[in-house]
Nucleic acid binder design. Structure first.
Lengths: 320, 320
DNA sequence: TTGAAAGCGTTACCAC
DNA sequence: GTGGTAACGCTTTCAA
């Protein structure tokens, strides 16, 4: 593989001049530029990215930290971030933790060793790591982490409130709650918003109607079966469309009428929600990803206090 | 940020020695090793990745080329590849083309400029690029590209055959086909297998029962409405669960009984398939990703002729 | 067991 | 406009 010196030699110029045409600098005579370009073409020259990175001290690469790319929220997020990266000639490094917390720590390494210029946090289970990360380079989070790093997030409080208000208007007197990871940022915020709403409402909740760590269709089915062994609440707020779909599926199988016997709501507005007529919350996740990437790439100085809140939309369907 | 020279200086040794402990070489006295480690700790030293990459001429990073990470097939694939990368301390670069063919060409650049050691092709719309890619470095494809690059792929012929056999056994006399991208590797293979099967069967197909470029739930709904304006086939093979779900949804809305009036099959065994009781084909995509990554990382010399075929499973449910 | 020095392929500063 | 040369931070070979 030819390198910049080969080009310089064959073109009868110095490396500097070659570098100049490589980077589109002015002050290179038309004549030499042409010759250099010719030689490059002939030798199928391509600059070595690592050398450029090393020399410039930056990589034009950003990372995104997610538990799993398979999760709908995260792959939409990555899609959005990826779009912006393309538009700005940056590359995107995807770091999957697979819920292994040591992987979260390892992700800092990319920042440390200069393999990425910045990092977007899709979700993190050890928020205490954020402080260190922030010292290593630009970071933005896609969940709220009160002032430790700049963040963009959805208005989960409002979403939960909308859902509760909605089922209450439809006549629910009792309500259940089913979450995914209760320790995640979202999990905590949703839980709080839920509790908060109940304080000022006549809606009743009971511990027997609470569940968490539900992630899949099957988890939803299992939960339905379990709920059937006790009294059903009039409504249940579920943190994820697929779990909600599992519930609906199992309830219907067992002759429970939705929403007559129990109203069910989901989150995310996935295709399955449309298919089953599930009332849910639509979150513009791709848009969130785009915004996060822009924040990271645009801001020279990131403000840790900066917090952007995105609104969501209530999609009312026949499950409530 | 401290660099290797700082460490050497402070520890009173040469860069070589520091480098040796960095890379776990033997022949370093216990004493010096301890001192060096201490200094590193104190200075919070972390080696610069780009310098290592440049010096070694490899990056321990591989790329994966996909149209969109949002597509279920591709994010499962990425998940599998990512797992293997983690296990082997490699990094994964995700390259999204968003169906823009110039992005496919651009992806070769990563190989050229040494930013990645190898490339996994999730899907490619311009297979002619593969020849060039192969000259630039190790490449494996997750679709069959007859001997241009080593490939891993699912036995789509057999899957289509199983589906057709199945609906035929259930009494279908006429059958429709609905594909995604007809020009993709999979699209072509499925089409051919479909045509092939019909030749030796009494099942009938007609051009009015063919559709392609259907990707979403909504596309399925639209197709259902369109089919309703003509005679329905007894069964329809759909290349994607979400599209099949859209069909079922719309048909039911219009009073068409599934599978009585029309049997429907999907592909992928997504949650939505279980929810709607859709007969479909389950593909172990994560496993495919894992295998592909292992191929790329394990083989010193990749054999372009090598072809691994993975079997799939027919999931029979109540839509047929 | 250790060190000196020559790469690796660029960029960027300083002369001319 | 152009060229020389010192970075950038590491690995690796050769001697000692």
């Amino acid at each position: 593989m030819a390198n910049i010196s080969d080009i310089a030699k064959q073109a009868g110029v110095s490396k500097s001049t070659v570098s100049r045409v490589l980077n589109g600098h002015k002050h290179v005579s038309k004549e030499k530029r042409r010759i250099i370009l010719d030689v490059m073409e002939r030798l199928e020259y391509s600059p070595n990215g690592n050398a450029i990175n090393l020399s410039r001290g930056e990589t034009n690469t950003i990372g995104v930290l997610v538990p799993r790319v398979g999760h709908p929220f995260f792959h939409q997020l990555i899609e959005g971030i990826g779009q912006v990266c393309m538009e700005r000639n940056h590359t995107l490094l995807v770091i999957q933790t697979e819920h292994d917390s040591s992987k979260e720590e390892a992700s800092m390494q990319y920042l440390r060793d200069k393999r990425i210029d910045g990092l977007i946090i899709g979700a993190i289970s050890q928020p205490q790591l954020l402080k260190t990360m922030r010292t290593l380079g630009p970071v933005v989070a896609c969940e709220d982490h009160q002032g430790i790093v700049p963040s963009l997030s959805f208005n989960h409080e409002k979403a939960i409130t909308m859902l509760l208000q909605h089922v209450e208007e439809r006549g629910a007197k009792t309500v259940g709650l089913c979450l995914g990871n209760p320790d995640s940022g979202v999990g905590r915020v949703r839980r709080e918003a839920f509790d908060q709403y109940l304080k000022t409402s006549t809606l009743r909740h009971g511990i027997q109607w609470y569940a968490d760590r539900c992630y899949s269709f099957e988890d939803g089915q299992a939960l339905a079966s379990q709920l059937l062994t006790i009294d059903l609440p009039d409504a249940i707020i579920v943190g994820n469309d697929e779990v909600a779909a599992g519930l609906i599926h199992q309830f219907r199988k067992d002759g429970i009428r939705v929403p007559k016997d129990i109203a069910i709501t989901g989150f995310d507005d996935r295709p399955i929600a449309r298919a089953l007529g599930l009332t849910t919350i639509r979150q513009p996740v791709v848009g969130l990803g785009r915004l996060a990437a822009k924040q990271l790439l645009d801001q020279k100085e990131l403000d840790n206090q900066k917090k952007i809140i995105l609104e969501m939309e209530l999609m009312i369907r026949r499950s409530t």
